[in-house]
Amino acid sequence: MEHRCDHRKLLSCEITIKDRKLGKLKGKVRNISLSGMLVDIGEESQQINTIVEVSFPVEACGGTSQCHAKAMVVHQQSGCLGLMFSELDSSVRQMLRKALYGYATVAERAYLYQGYKATRNPDPVKNQRASIY
């Protein structure tokens, strides 16, 4: 059963995972959302429910920024870790939102929506009636 709350976007970038017991692991992000990510770590293994620190680059606003967050390992299978963000700084959340959806704040979303509405027919019923008569 699928429990995801957010849309995942395919992403291919290097990631560093820090664990208190295992030290640093290197991996590659496969997909990401505002709530978590799937990371390919090869033959390494990680314990479920472990809190780790992750560091990965995100492209947004015409540049690349390094994101740092805490995440919990929620599953491991076929050389991949499923990570759920447990602590996500507001600036990192904004960078991810911008990279995933093209907007970072509610105000930006409203602005983009207004631009979308302006390009669409504001009253399709009225225009349909006009074309009938």
Rank of each mutant, 00 (worst) to 15 (best):
I32K: 04
K28Y: 13
Q46H: 04
V29G: 06
C61A: 15
L38P: 02
G42Y: 02
G63Y: 07
V58E: 09
N31W: 03
K28H: 14
S55L: 12
S33E: 10
G63M: 12
L38Y: 04
N31E: 06
Q46N: 00
S45N: 12
I32H: 08
M37E: 03
V29F: 11
E44V: 07
T64D: 01
S35H: 09
S33M: 10
S45D: 14
C61G: 13
T64L: 07
S33V: 11
E59S: 12
T64S: 12
T50D: 03
N31G: 03
G23H: 00
E44H: 13
G36E: 06
K28M: 15
L38R: 01
L34H: 06
I51P: 02
L38V: 02
Q46L: 13
L38T: 00
L38N: 00
G42D: 09
S65K: 11
I51F: 07
G36P: 06
S35W: 04
L22T: 06
T50S: 09
C61S: 15
V29K: 01
T64E: 09
L34V: 11
V58Y: 10
M37P: 05
Q46M: 14
I48N: 00
L38C: 03
S45I: 12
S55C: 13
I41V: 15
A60S: 15
S45K: 13
S33P: 12
S33W: 10
V52R: 01
Q46G: 01
C61N: 15
K28F: 14
K24W: 05
C61I: 09
A60K: 04
E43S: 15
F56A: 04
E44P: 05
I41A: 05
I32E: 11
Q46V: 09
I51V: 15
V54G: 07
S35R: 05
E59P: 00
G27R: 03
E44W: 05
D40T: 00
R30K: 08
P57L: 01
A60E: 14
G36F: 11
R30I: 12
N31L: 02
C61E: 15
G27D: 11
V58I: 15
G27V: 09
Q47L: 06
M37K: 00
S35C: 12
I48D: 03
P57T: 00
L22V: 08
I41H: 08
A60C: 15
